[in-house]
Amino acid sequence: MDETVSRTAASAAAPAIEVRDLSIGYGDRIVLHDLNFRIEPGQIVTILGGSGCGKSTLLKHIIGLHAPLKGDILINGRSIVHANEEQKRSIMSEFGVAYQGGALFRSLSLAENIALPMEELTTWSRQEIRKRVSEKLALVHLDGYESYMPSDLSGGMIKRAAFARALALDPKLLFFDEPSAGLDPLTSDMLDNVILEIREKTGATIMMVTHELPSIFRVSDRVIMLSAETKSIVDDGSPAWLRDHGATDYVRSFLSRGGTFLSSTTESGAPDGVPAP
C-alpha cells in the first residue's frame, strides 16, 4: 500500500482529480469506503473491478451526480461535494461525460445533440457552433451523419457520437463509462483509437470504467483496481505492472486474461504514466 502512496505522490502538484477519504453508498449500504487517489493531468486512468464492486457508482460520485457519505472529491482543485448548485454547474461544464448507453437525446438529431452543450453554455454564434460540431464529428469519424436521429444509428456510432458530445466544449477532463461494452472487437478497437486520438489532440485527462482487457492494455496509463470484498482499492498502477507484480493473486489473474494481447501492445511503446519501481 505504501508503494501506491509513493507512486501517486511522485507526480506533479496540481492533480486533475483528487479523491480524499471517500466513502460512498446508498443509505446504510456502503459500496466503497476510504478511497484516496489523485489523477494527474494527461493520464488515461481505468477504474477496474469485478461486477458489482461499484465502479460506475464511483464514477457517478466523481462527476457529482450523487453525494458521497463521507470524504471529498476535488476536480481541478475545486470540491464538487461541497459546491452549491451554481458552482457545481460551473465545475460540471469543465468536463465531458460519455455514458454507457450513449445517452443521446432521442428527440434531437446527431448535430443538435452535439450542439446542445454549446448552445446552452456558450455564447458562440450559430456558424461557429456548426463548424465545431462538424469538427467533433470528424474527430470520431462520423462526418456526414449530422442530420441522423439517434434511433437511426448503430451502437458503435452512438458511442462515438456520445464521445463527440462529451468533447463539445473541449474539456480538459473526460469520463467514459464502459465505452466499448457490448461492441464487436473491430468497433471496440476503433473506439480505442479514438480515445488515443483525443488525448493526442487535446491533451485531456481521461478517466474510464471498463472491463475490456484489450482496451485497458491498449490505452490505459494506469489502472485503479477495486474489490467488492474489501470495498476499497486493492491495487493501483500500470496495467502491465499490475499483471506481473499485482498485490494479490486476484489482481494478477484478473489482468492476465488479456495477457496474450498485451505482449504486442505494451512493448510497442504505449505511454506508461506510472513508472514501475
Binding site: R89, S90, F95, Y99, A103, F105, L116, L121
Partner: peptide, 16 residues
C-alpha cells in the same frame, strides 16, 4: 425512459 438511459444524468453533467 430518459432517466433509465442516463439522459437526465447527461443533462445534469452538461450543467443544464
Amino acid at each position: 425512459t430518459m432517466k433509465i438511459s442516463e439522459e437526465l444524468d447527461a443533462l445534469r453533467t452538461m450543467g443544464i
